[in-house]
Protein backbone atom coordinates (compact mmCIF):
# COMPACT_ATOMS: atom_id res chain seq x y z
CA UNK A 1 0.00 0.00 0.00
CA UNK A 2 1.19 3.52 -0.76
CA UNK A 3 1.33 6.24 1.87
CA UNK A 4 -1.09 9.11 1.33
CA UNK A 5 -0.07 11.03 4.45
CA UNK A 6 3.36 11.06 6.02
CA UNK A 7 4.06 13.30 9.00
CA UNK A 8 7.57 13.54 10.42
CA UNK A 9 8.06 15.51 13.66
CA UNK A 10 5.09 17.61 12.61
CA UNK A 11 4.37 20.72 14.66
CA UNK A 12 1.32 22.86 13.97
CA UNK A 13 1.01 26.28 15.50
CA UNK A 14 -0.93 29.52 15.28
CA UNK A 15 0.41 33.04 15.74
CA UNK A 16 3.86 32.23 14.31
CA UNK A 17 4.70 29.56 16.85
CA UNK A 18 3.29 31.25 19.96
CA UNK A 19 0.37 28.86 20.18
CA UNK A 20 1.50 25.27 19.49
CA UNK A 21 -1.41 22.90 18.78
CA UNK A 22 0.27 19.69 17.58
CA UNK A 23 3.78 18.99 18.79
CA UNK A 24 6.35 16.70 17.16
CA UNK A 25 3.90 14.16 15.68
CA UNK A 26 5.13 11.31 13.49
CA UNK A 27 2.74 8.95 11.69
CA UNK A 28 1.91 7.46 8.31
CA UNK A 29 -1.49 6.76 6.76
CA UNK A 30 -1.83 4.35 3.83
CA UNK A 31 -4.17 4.36 0.85
CA UNK A 32 -7.54 2.74 1.62
CA UNK A 33 -7.30 3.00 5.42
CA UNK A 34 -10.13 4.22 7.64
CA UNK A 35 -8.79 6.42 10.42
CA UNK A 36 -10.53 7.92 13.42
CA UNK A 37 -8.96 10.90 15.15
CA UNK A 38 -10.38 11.57 18.58
CA UNK A 39 -9.49 13.74 21.53
CA UNK A 40 -10.92 16.28 23.94
CA UNK A 41 -12.41 19.55 22.72
CA UNK A 42 -9.72 22.01 21.72
CA UNK A 43 -7.05 19.31 21.51
CA UNK A 44 -6.25 20.14 17.88
CA UNK A 45 -8.20 17.45 15.97
CA UNK A 46 -9.67 19.90 13.47
CA UNK A 47 -6.37 21.78 13.16
CA UNK A 48 -4.64 18.51 12.24
CA UNK A 49 -7.34 17.81 9.64
CA UNK A 50 -7.00 21.36 8.25
CA UNK A 51 -3.29 20.79 7.75
CA UNK A 52 -4.13 17.86 5.45
CA UNK A 53 -5.94 20.17 3.01
CA UNK A 54 -3.51 23.06 3.42
CA UNK A 55 -5.65 25.41 5.48
CA UNK A 56 -2.74 25.58 7.93
CA UNK A 57 0.92 25.04 7.05
CA UNK A 58 3.33 22.99 9.18
CA UNK A 59 5.28 25.16 11.62
CA UNK A 60 8.06 22.59 12.04
CA UNK A 61 8.75 19.10 10.70
CA UNK A 62 7.40 17.75 7.44
CA UNK A 63 3.95 16.79 6.19
CA UNK A 64 3.43 15.08 2.87
CA UNK A 65 -0.12 14.67 1.55
CA UNK A 66 -0.80 12.90 -1.75
CA UNK A 67 2.79 13.49 -2.83
CA UNK A 68 2.85 17.20 -1.98
CA UNK A 69 5.15 18.72 0.63
CA UNK A 70 2.62 20.82 2.55
CA UNK A 71 5.30 23.20 3.81
CA UNK A 72 6.51 24.17 0.35
CA UNK A 73 3.32 23.61 -1.62
CA UNK A 74 2.45 26.36 -4.10
CA UNK A 75 -1.02 27.85 -4.40
CA UNK A 76 -1.77 26.15 -7.74
CA UNK A 77 -0.59 22.77 -6.39
CA UNK A 78 -2.71 23.22 -3.27
CA UNK A 79 -5.81 23.82 -5.40
CA UNK A 80 -4.91 20.75 -7.48
CA UNK A 81 -4.61 18.64 -4.30
CA UNK A 82 -7.92 19.93 -2.98
CA UNK A 83 -9.66 19.05 -6.25
CA UNK A 84 -8.75 15.41 -5.54
CA UNK A 85 -9.97 15.39 -1.94
CA UNK A 86 -13.46 15.00 -0.51
CA UNK A 87 -14.11 17.17 2.53
CA UNK A 88 -17.06 16.94 4.92
CA UNK A 89 -17.69 19.60 7.56
CA UNK A 90 -19.71 19.57 10.77
CA UNK A 91 -21.50 22.74 9.63
CA UNK A 92 -21.99 21.26 6.10
CA UNK A 93 -20.62 24.32 4.24
CA UNK A 94 -23.15 24.12 1.43
CA UNK A 95 -23.76 27.04 -0.93
CA UNK A 96 -27.22 28.17 0.08
CA UNK A 97 -27.96 30.00 -3.19
CA UNK A 98 -27.42 26.78 -5.18
CA UNK A 99 -29.76 23.81 -5.45
CA UNK A 100 -28.93 20.52 -3.75
CA UNK A 101 -28.09 19.05 -7.16
CA UNK A 102 -25.62 21.82 -7.99
CA UNK A 103 -24.02 21.63 -4.53
CA UNK A 104 -23.38 17.91 -4.99
CA UNK A 105 -21.50 18.43 -8.25
CA UNK A 106 -19.42 21.42 -7.08
CA UNK A 107 -16.14 19.43 -7.42
CA UNK A 108 -17.17 18.47 -10.97
CA UNK A 109 -17.99 22.11 -11.83
CA UNK A 110 -14.57 23.15 -10.53
CA UNK A 111 -12.84 20.47 -12.61
CA UNK A 112 -14.82 21.43 -15.70
CA UNK A 113 -16.93 18.31 -16.29
CA UNK A 114 -19.75 18.64 -18.82
CA UNK A 115 -23.33 19.33 -17.71
CA UNK A 116 -24.38 15.85 -18.81
CA UNK A 117 -21.76 14.17 -16.61
CA UNK A 118 -22.73 16.48 -13.74
CA UNK A 119 -26.40 15.54 -14.09
CA UNK A 120 -25.77 11.78 -14.21
CA UNK A 121 -23.41 11.92 -11.22
CA UNK A 122 -25.82 14.11 -9.20
CA UNK A 123 -28.71 11.69 -9.80
CA UNK A 124 -26.56 8.69 -8.83
CA UNK A 125 -25.19 10.27 -5.66
CA UNK A 126 -28.46 11.77 -4.49
CA UNK A 127 -30.14 8.42 -4.87
CA UNK A 128 -27.21 6.89 -2.95
CA UNK A 129 -27.74 9.30 -0.02
CA UNK A 130 -31.52 8.85 -0.24
CA UNK A 131 -32.23 12.41 -1.38
CA UNK A 132 -33.20 11.79 -5.01
CA UNK A 133 -36.48 13.67 -4.57
CA UNK A 134 -34.79 16.74 -3.06
CA UNK A 135 -32.49 17.55 -6.00
CA UNK A 136 -34.11 20.87 -6.87
CA UNK A 137 -34.52 22.13 -3.32
CA UNK A 138 -32.14 24.59 -1.67
CA UNK A 139 -30.01 23.57 1.37
CA UNK A 140 -31.96 25.73 3.81
CA UNK A 141 -35.14 23.83 2.88
CA UNK A 142 -33.56 20.61 4.19
CA UNK A 143 -33.04 19.29 7.74
CA UNK A 144 -29.53 19.18 9.24
CA UNK A 145 -29.25 15.44 8.59
CA UNK A 146 -30.28 15.89 4.97
CA UNK A 147 -27.82 18.76 4.50
CA UNK A 148 -25.02 16.59 5.85
CA UNK A 149 -25.92 13.82 3.44
CA UNK A 150 -25.66 16.39 0.63
CA UNK A 151 -22.24 17.28 2.05
CA UNK A 152 -21.15 13.63 1.95
CA UNK A 153 -22.51 13.22 -1.58
CA UNK A 154 -20.47 16.28 -2.63
CA UNK A 155 -17.36 14.78 -1.03
CA UNK A 156 -17.86 11.56 -3.01
CA UNK A 157 -18.77 13.17 -6.33
CA UNK A 158 -15.31 13.03 -7.90
CA UNK A 159 -14.18 9.69 -6.47
CA UNK A 160 -11.48 11.33 -4.32
CA UNK A 161 -8.42 9.40 -3.17
CA UNK A 162 -9.01 10.68 0.35
CA UNK A 163 -12.01 11.91 2.33
CA UNK A 164 -11.50 14.23 5.28
CA UNK A 165 -14.48 14.53 7.62
CA UNK A 166 -14.61 16.94 10.54
CA UNK A 167 -17.24 15.81 13.07
CA UNK A 168 -19.54 14.66 10.24
CA UNK A 169 -22.25 13.39 12.60
CA UNK A 170 -21.78 16.02 15.31
CA UNK A 171 -25.16 17.66 14.72
CA UNK A 172 -27.11 14.70 13.38
CA UNK A 173 -29.87 12.41 14.64
CA UNK A 174 -29.37 8.64 14.84
CA UNK A 175 -30.82 7.87 11.40
CA UNK A 176 -28.76 10.48 9.54
CA UNK A 177 -25.65 9.49 11.51
CA UNK A 178 -26.17 5.88 10.42
CA UNK A 179 -26.51 6.91 6.75
CA UNK A 180 -23.34 9.04 6.94
CA UNK A 181 -21.27 6.25 8.58
CA UNK A 182 -22.50 3.77 5.95
CA UNK A 183 -21.48 6.13 3.15
CA UNK A 184 -18.02 6.69 4.59
CA UNK A 185 -17.54 2.96 5.22
CA UNK A 186 -18.53 2.18 1.62
CA UNK A 187 -16.19 4.84 0.25
CA UNK A 188 -13.32 3.19 2.05
CA UNK A 189 -14.33 -0.42 1.52
CA UNK A 190 -15.56 -0.32 -2.07
CA UNK A 191 -13.79 2.71 -3.60
CA UNK A 192 -10.51 2.18 -1.72
CA UNK A 193 -10.53 5.83 -0.60
CA UNK A 194 -8.59 6.77 2.51
CA UNK A 195 -11.07 8.16 5.05
CA UNK A 196 -10.00 10.33 7.98
CA UNK A 197 -12.69 11.21 10.45
CA UNK A 198 -12.34 13.63 13.33
CA UNK A 199 -14.94 12.76 15.92
CA UNK A 200 -15.71 12.86 19.63
CA UNK A 201 -17.00 9.34 19.63
CA UNK A 202 -16.36 6.29 17.47
CA UNK A 203 -19.65 4.59 16.53
CA UNK A 204 -20.37 1.44 18.51
CA UNK A 205 -21.21 -0.60 15.45
CA UNK A 206 -18.59 -0.28 12.74
CA UNK A 207 -18.18 -2.91 10.06
CA UNK A 208 -14.69 -2.41 8.65
CA UNK A 209 -11.22 -2.38 10.22
CA UNK A 210 -9.95 1.03 11.26
CA UNK A 211 -7.06 2.82 12.93
CA UNK A 212 -7.51 5.14 15.85
CA UNK A 213 -5.40 8.14 16.78
CA UNK A 214 -5.87 10.14 19.97
CA UNK A 215 -4.66 13.70 20.30
CA UNK A 216 -3.71 14.68 23.82
CA UNK A 217 -1.56 17.56 25.06
CA UNK A 218 -0.34 18.24 21.52
CA UNK A 219 0.79 14.66 20.94
CA UNK A 220 -0.71 12.28 18.36
CA UNK A 221 -0.80 8.67 19.66
CA UNK A 222 -2.12 5.60 17.92
CA UNK A 223 -4.37 3.27 19.94
CA UNK A 224 -3.67 -0.39 19.18
Amino acid sequence: MASVITAQNLTLAYEKGKNIIINDATFTIEQGEFVFITGPSGSGKSTLLKSFYGQIKPYKGTLNVGGFDMKKIKKAQLLQLRRNLGIVFQDYKLINEWTVEKNVVLPLIITGYSLDVQKVQAEKLLSHVKLADQAHKYPLELSGGEQQRVGVARALSKNPFMILADEPTGNLDEFSSGVVWDLLENACDQLNATVLVVTHKIPTIFNIPYRHFIIENGGVHEVH
Binding site: Y53, Q55, L78, L79, Q80, L81, R82, R83, N84, L85, I87, K93, L94, I95, E97, L106, P107, I109, I110
Partner: peptide, 16 residues
Protein backbone atom coordinates in the same frame (compact mmCIF):
# COMPACT_ATOMS: atom_id res chain seq x y z
CA UNK B 1 -17.51 35.54 0.85
CA UNK B 2 -18.84 32.22 2.15
CA UNK B 3 -19.54 30.84 -1.31
CA UNK B 4 -16.09 31.88 -2.52
CA UNK B 5 -14.43 30.33 0.56
CA UNK B 6 -16.25 27.02 0.04
CA UNK B 7 -15.21 26.97 -3.62
CA UNK B 8 -11.61 27.64 -2.62
CA UNK B 9 -11.65 24.73 -0.13
CA UNK B 10 -12.70 22.46 -2.99
CA UNK B 11 -9.88 23.77 -5.19
CA UNK B 12 -11.60 26.33 -7.41
CA UNK B 13 -9.17 28.69 -9.16
CA UNK B 14 -9.54 32.42 -8.63
CA UNK B 15 -11.35 33.03 -11.94
CA UNK B 16 -14.06 30.53 -11.04
Amino acid sequence: KERMAIMEIFGAPMML
